[in-house]
């Protein structure tokens, strides 16, 4: 069995966001594998280590810099990596285009039986692209998964719903997206980081995967940081008195109680 994991390079979650010239500035910001994608990569490697798969391949859509994120996945234990890029993909709001590109690349990478990804990217918070590609590819999905078994031509997964969980089965090939309780991603060891440098990393253009990008459904017309807060109104006094005064303020001033 071959497993494909789609990943995205994102800012670390500690990153301070600044806007520069109408775009989000990446100046001085450390970029990582999207944390949820890292759970997906770890799961794929675990499946391979337990004999459930022969090959783990990672795929990303991203500029040259995203190659670093792929190397990280190779150092964790993935066997090969693919990066698709075209400068026309740099504009935000193009989830529909990204899904077309991803589906094209995944079509070219066939045959594979399991598609893994993080459930959401912590930067654009969209959770659209890989599911949309799965529909195009005609495979089922189980999203936001915290436990996964693969075998007998199917996946059995525990998925997070609003306020409860479900155990769900789906036939392979299938898409499963990872949530944070799925596993604990490993840190690559130094020998594995060295080894990763010799693993194959293939770069594809849109022409290579036979896709015409088309125009995006959305264009970004504005970007802003949240309005600055002026700081809290500190309620003074002994703790018990302050507590009573605070309750009163929430009732009479903020009117939230």
């Amino acid at each position: 069995m071959k497993i494909v994991v789609t990943i995205k390079q994102t800012f670390t979650t500690e990153a301070k966001i600044a806007v520069d010239g109408g775009a989000i500035s990446d100046k001085g910001i450390k970029q990582i594998v999207n944390p949820y994608d890292e759970f997906a990569v770890e799961q794929a490697i675990k499946i391979k280590e337990s004999g459930g798969a022969e090959e783990v391949v990672v795929l990303t859509i991203g500029p040259e810099r995203a190659g670093e994120a792929l190397r990280q996945c190779l150092a964790m234990g993935a066997d090969a990596a693919f990066r698709v890029w075209d400068d026309s993909l740099a504009a935000p709001g193009a989830w529909d285009v990204y899904a077309t590109v991803l589906a094209g690349a995944l079509e070219k990478m066939k045959p594979w039986e399991l598609l893994l990804a993080g459930w959401v990217a912590v930067d654009d918070n969209a959770a659209i692209v890989v599911q949309r590609a799965a529909e195009t590819l005609g495979i089922p999905q189980v999203l936001v998964v915290n436990k996964l078994d693969v075998g007998d031509g199917k996946v059995t997964a525990v998925r997070e719903m609003d306020g409860y969980r479900e155990v769900v089965e789906a036939p392979l090939p299938a898409l499963v997206t990872a949530d944070k309780a799925l596993n604990t991603p490993r840190y690559p060891t130094l020998p594995n980081i060295m080894k990763a440098k010799r693993k194959p990393l293939t770069v594809w253009t849109l022409e290579d995967i036979g896709v015409t990008a088309g125009s995006a459904g959305f264009t970004r017309t504005g970007l802003a940081l949240p309005p600055a807060k002026t700081g809290a109104k500190i309620v003074e006094g002994e703790p018990e008195e302050a507590a009573v005064a605070l309750a009163d303020l929430l009732h009479t001033e903020a009117k939230v109680i």
């Binding site: 809290a232 018990e240 507590a243 109680i257």
Partner: peptide, 25 residues
């Protein structure tokens, strides 16, 4: 920095009194 209201004190002293005051309201 982002709060609208704040109390600088031990939460174990504040929260029970706050709860009582809210219940009264």
């Amino acid at each position: 920095e982002i709060a609208d209201y704040g109390i600088v004190a031990d939460l174990f002293k504040v929260v029970p009194a706050f709860n009582e005051a809210i219940a009264k309201i």
